[in-house]
Design a protein around this nucleic acid. Sequence first.
DNA 1: CATAACTTCGTACACCGTACCCAGTAAGGG
DNA 2: CCCTTACTGGGTACGGTGTACGAAGTTATG
Lengths: 268, 268
Amino acid sequence: MSTEYSGGGDLTFSLKVMWGGREKPTRGPRPGLSVERIVEAAIRVADSEGLAALSMRRIATELGVGTMSLYRYVPGKNELVDLMLDAAYGEGLEPGRTPEQEAEALRGKGWRAGLEEIARGSWALHLRHPWILQVSQARPVLGPSSIKGLEIALRVLDGIGLDEFEMMKMITLVDGYVTGTARIIVEAGQAAKQTGVSDEQFWQAQEPFMTRLLDDARFTTLRRVADAGVFADVSGADPSAGDDGFEFGLQRVLDGIEAYVTAGREAR
Amino acid sequence: MSTEYSGGGDLTFSLKVMWGGREKPTRGPRPGLSVERIVEAAIRVADSEGLAALSMRRIATELGVGTMSLYRYVPGKNELVDLMLDAAYGEGLEPGRTPEQEAEALRGKGWRAGLEEIARGSWALHLRHPWILQVSQARPVLGPSSIKGLEIALRVLDGIGLDEFEMMKMITLVDGYVTGTARIIVEAGQAAKQTGVSDEQFWQAQEPFMTRLLDDARFTTLRRVADAGVFADVSGADPSAGDDGFEFGLQRVLDGIEAYVTAGREAR
DNA sequence: CATAACTTCGTACACCGTACCCAGTAAGGG
DNA sequence: CCCTTACTGGGTACGGTGTACGAAGTTATG
């Protein structure tokens, strides 16, 4: 079992569906399903049972249809995942509002507050849909939602003294930080379900090795950190415990960006 | 097909193998294989063909043995992935040197240079073994290599005015940035192989949608960025193109950390 | 009303991880 | 010495996956 790949199949089909460029059939029986309903069901399954449980048979059962019926609407599983991604990305966006309006609202309190809000939105999105992190975004199929999100982020950073390359790099930086941290924190919550190994079993198995380790003279710093209680809440059940770490790191990242922005401004 | 999970199976077995706590059999035929050889072959396959191609049958073929023979040495695929991870993490570490020695060498030019080097090492590791990014590190099985790496990183940050929690947060921050960015950049290079869609095909399929998009008044900023050539090298073949973006972001992250460290020092 | 276009979906195939089992091999105890 | 015991090798089989193919039913159009 390996990671899903985005953009792996009939690309033109996915793009047409996402941008609304497919024509309705006139003849034949009325379609009993729709791409939207399939995508919705698939997201529901992935949210609650994880991407591992997302099979075409499972989705068909969820919708009460035959497995192969899905292939009348979606060319394959790869394309379905593409559509799931774009649907998820679109959740935070008001469909009626233009990127300009969204960006203006975000920039009300300055670019830093705007970027902060974007990062928090992305963080929350990954908490809601942990399966996104398991889909390789290598060459993301550019759907309307991701494009819209990119335009908004660019507008937030526009006019503060960065050139186009720098703007894009900053967005990559924040995105990299958010998704990287989300992977570490979010997946921990899912691990028990996915692996069938409970948190207790997991730490119990590691414990003898850990205690022996902490007495080792080579790992004195680790021991001090462990004694301070840094790992105490790792096995804890509080899912929002990761939020503190996220916020802390986010501020450091934004500090780094701000230092660059102000330095560039002074140089002018 | 969904992401591999680390720590999914017989945990104690993986831990014993990693920490060298398994006894040799006395009776019976000599083992024709070894865990090390299997792990090595598995990494070879994953490196060259991707995690998707890593099946027990494939590994067995690689080694010229029957598929089920592998199960004499490894309880299952999950455990094998655990071992692959620890083996990969161990690559950058000199086996003979203690964490103290490694950390001292890194700290020679200050904590920032040390952290920088750790980040670059991790970046290079992910370039060498892209499959690592496809393995969920939710609850990483703590092997000697990852523990050693953590101890080294902690020592690099020790004594510069951060408390234990802050030290750990900084490490999470840098790790999150490195892996997050690596995912974005590294996987792009693998996408063509994995999906069977060439780069040309991919961008050709998206082009009509993109050009229509760029004429849209709602996406003027995106258009300006595209015209500046920011996306020009995305489809390019140069794999080291991502290095610039990585280095740029890394410096911003380190700036953010440095600002926090010096602010804390002044407060004292 | 025949036809063409469209739907639903059962069957089948190649792949996966791996449980089970049996045959072959080598050391230890008598 | 040989028999028991522990071990290795690996064939077969089972239940899962994505999906190609094709048969059967439904509906608008010429």
